[in-house]
């Protein structure tokens, strides 16, 4: 018995003493980047084979919360400008917030059934007695904020509201719909166009002029200011090659909007 206990203690001590690995570049990225960012990183690593990059995905609000409690991430890629700007305002980040893409909202549902318009989808859902619409939680997911705002403009909002289910992040919307728990979901176009989702269901883009653009901002954190690869990867995210990858992945490029007037800029960052 005592010997067994000694063995347990010894094992624990050996494990505690095991050396830490060389520091990798840690990125905290919005869930909507889940399928595109690995492509970008693959591309980057083909030019920088020694760079070890790890990404943690989550809703931007949750990541922001973790970052403001000292999470060891070097770059924060938010799904909106607000969280990145707040991080900078709280002195947890350095330099500037850089816009890197605009997000798009899309309806996504399972099966072969086709819909021609968003109104068509809502009518179909409301006709089902237990039809549910999944959206990301507006409390901490920027896509959720815009999904909710878009639905609220609808004249049938009063009957739509009780049909809503909220998910932890925008990527989980796909999980809710795929598992059949919700009949339809509003998620990022960048998720809907991926092979994983395209093979399971169909999407319909919500016309971009019907909601405020989901301008996405990224920033280098305090910890990142000391990391050898952080500034370089940050600059790499703004190259034409990456913009192309992001566009193919379902994001709109920000180039056309950079010349927007200050007023518009403010409206965009909500």
């Amino acid at each position: 018995m005592v010997r067994m206990f000694h063995a347990l203690l010894f094992g624990a001590l050996v494990l505690m003493a095991s050396p830490a690995r060389a520091e990798s570049l840690n990125i905290a990225a919005a869930s909507s980047m889940r399928f595109v960012l690995p492509l970008v990183i693959e591309h980057y690593q083909s030019q920088h084979p020694t760079a070890d990059i790890r990404v943690v995905y989550g809703s931007s609000g949750r990541l922001y919360g973790q970052l403001s409690h000292g999470a060891p991430f070097h770059i924060f890629m938010s799904a909106n400008m607000k969280y990145a700007e707040q991080l900078l305002a709280n002195n947890n980040a350095v330099g500037n917030v850089q816009a890197y893409a605009d997000g798009r909202l899309a309806f996504w549902w399972q099966g072969a059934q086709s819909h021609v318009s968003t109104a068509d989808i809502l009518v179909a859902i409301l006709a089902q007695p237990r039809g549910r619409i999944a959206i990301a939680s507006p409390q901490h997911a920027p896509y959720g904020v815009q999904s909710l705002a878009w639905l609220q403009q609808h004249e049938q909002w009063a009957v739509i509201e009780p049909r809503l289910v909220y998910t932890e992040s925008v990527a989980q919307v796909a999980h809710f719909v795929r598992s059949g728990a919700a009949s339809v979901g509003i998620l990022a176009l960048a998720l809907a166009v991926t092979d994983e989702l395209a093979s399971e269901g169909q999407y319909l883009l919500i016309p971009p002029h019907e909601y405020q653009p989901l301008r996405k901002g990224m920033v280098i954190t305090q910890a990142g200011s000391k990391h050898p690869y952080a500034a370089e990867f940050f600059a790499y995210m703004q190259t034409p090659a990456v913009r192309r990858i992001l566009e193919q992945g379902g994001f709109a490029s920000v180039t056309g909007l950079e010349a927007a007037s200050p007023n518009q800029q403010q409206a965009l960052t909500q």
Binding site: S31, R34, F35, Y57, S169, A171, Q172, A174, H175, R178, E196, L197, E200
Partner: peptide, 8 residues
């Protein structure tokens, strides 16, 4: 949790 979120 991560696998489920990425539909893996």
């Amino acid at each position: 949790y991560d696998h489920v979120e990425s539909l893996n």
